[in-house]
Design a binder for these strands. Structure first.
Lengths: 337, 337
DNA sequence: TTGTAAGCGTTATCAC
DNA sequence: GTGATAACGCTTACAA
């Protein structure tokens, strides 16, 4: 392994001078710099990041903890974050939490191992009750649901507003009996499902449509499989409906399949809208209407918040910031174009 | 920051004893161990991975370089690899190469920074000409196309055989004029497209069907967008066809949209099959027939190869191994069920 | 069974 | 402009 000492010897300087060159410090004679760079090239020297990290406390890598990388939404989010982080010369290591509270706590603990300079945590399992656990001593940004009065920076989706707009969009298109396929009965957790359920309720109330509990379909996990099963179930239940708001696009893709299985036509018999605007939605048949929360903006904001924290170092810490993304309604074939 | 010294002081032992406890070394009195563990809990001590890494040369993290994490295929592959790596107590850091030769070379170089113990590189841009570049001095496994006589371990898909089976499946279902949507004219690179083109040709030859160049549709990138455009193009070209083999499922999903746009019905007018068996394929309408290369097996094999290399340390290096995965044809609605 | 000493490769500090 | 020294937190080798 080639070390900084080897380079120094080859260039006829001290290790410190090599270090100065590597780190772009001023006050190095142009000629010396050239000699050092030449030696670095000749020997194919690479800095040992671990050693640098030990000395500086920085790794140049941030952690990104998401429920599952194979769900399109998180894959697309991860890609955006990698892109945004690269602009700050940061690398991203992705952790999977398995969408569980335990997995998210693990991610919190792991980052204490100082492998990463900071952590972007996409929560689904942690709730307001876990506020204390978020008081970590390293830079962190929460990406996801709103945690009331959380002590950390927070980038959230416009969940309630987006869900209200999605439901209102269905109503505008003539739906009066809108099924909600979501992740379970509202509990005390502030999770995606209950927030989006709030939006759904608000939109119905605004339109003067009474909420019919038989139109609330709860599923166990936000997967295509569960979405498909839910759509089949409601189709065979005998309950009348003419619209469906699915809590995520992944669930909606499953629901489209479930309706097809049940012989229910989209959008003629039922209009369907999801939430997230994943890339696949524009290509499936029928293409999927959705709420687009501007992932790129969320990703770049999360990274910007984290970079801000990284820079705080000695200075006193700023108060926790919150950013709620904007959204647009994307009308496609599944709601009639 | 709590260090091993702090723990030692609190437990009334030396740092070495703490180290022994942390690393599960035997020869520590039960009572001493308990005292140390108590101190660790009390102080909320975490090992500094960078320091350990500097000393041991191990990080406990492997790198995974894939073209793009937001393509379903790679997302699902990454999830499998994370799962397989976790069984060996290894974490996975994901890099994006952007599907370019440069990006892949960057990934190769980055791992020299010793951030990772080893690298799983999913190649699409590197070819046999780059064999020399793969002679790196750290554990590496190539995941993807076959690189002739490569000097590294290699886990490959059954590209030619799978493509042949996919095409044969269309022929079995009655297709005689099978469109191939692939990534470009076969060059000297051994890439997915040219390998799968070989399989396509073989299947046609076996069935005694002459190859019609007008049925070869080349696209610029293996995306849904390109797939959709290709399907529209061939539909409007006036060329007759009754089947389509798309080089990946992502391209096939795009093609399904393109055919729908052009008023071509699947599977009545054209039967469509992809390659990769991504999860979405089972849910879209019509569901997508595909070649399943057993991702889980590929992922676990890649990790196993890498773990084997990690263990080599002092011993002499074994010869490079090669594993070609098996495959199955998954017949769904897009080829008539 | 526990502890001492040394060093992994780098950089902050400060002297020259 | 350049370099000597020490230190980051940990573990290997060996001593007690």
């Amino acid at each position: 392994m080639v070390t900084i000492q080897d380079v120094a010897r080859a260039a006829g300087v001290s290790a410190m001078t090599v270090s100065h060159v590597i780190n772009d410090h001023p006050h190095v004679k142009t000629e010396t710099r050239a000699r050092v760079l030449q030696a670095i090239t000749d020997l194919d020297y690479r800095v040992n990041v671990a050693a640098r990290n030990l000395r500086t406390g920085r790794t140049g890598t941030i952690g990104l903890a998401v429920p599952e990388v194979d769900r399109p939404y998180y894959g697309q989010l991860a890609a955006e974050i990698i892109t945004a982080a690269a602009r700050h010369n940061l690398k991203v290591a992705i952790e999977q939490t398995g969408a569980s509270r335990e997995g998210e706590l693990d991610a919190l603990a792991l980052s204490r191992n100082r492998l990463y300079d900071g952590l972007i945590l996409s929560t689904v399992g942690l709730g307001p009750a876990d506020t204390d656990l978020l008081k970590v001593d390293y830079p962190m940004v929460i990406l996801g649901e709103r945690i009331f009065d959380g002590p950390v920076d927070h980038v959230a989706m416009p969940n309630v507003e987006g869900a209200r707009a999605a439901t209102a969009h269905l109503i505008e298109r003539g739906c009066r009996r809108v099924v909600l396929i979501d992740g379970g009965p509202p509990g005390d957790e502030v999770d995606v499902s209950s927030l989006r359920y709030d939006g759904y309720r608000e939109a119905l109330a605004e339109a003067g449509i009474p909420l019919d509990p038989r139109l609330l379909v709860h599923i166990d996990g936000l997967t295509m499989e569960q979405g498909a099963a839910a759509a089949r179930r409601v189709s065979e239940s005998g309950v009348e409906f003419d619209g469906a708001f699915c809590v995520t696009d992944t669930v909606a893709m499953g629901a489209l399949r479930g309706f097809a299985d049940a012989g229910v036509r989209v959008p003629q018999d039922v209009k369907v809208i999801g939430f997230d605007n994943i890339a696949e939605g524009a290509y499936i048949v029928p293409s999927l209407s959705s709420i687009d929360p501007d992932h790129a903006l969320m990703a770049s904001t999360a990274v910007r918040f984290l970079v801000g924290r990284l820079a705080e170092k000695g200075k006193k810490r700023q108060v926790a910031r919150e950013f709620i993304s904007r959204f647009t309604v994307v009308a496609r074939e599944s709601t009639g174009g």
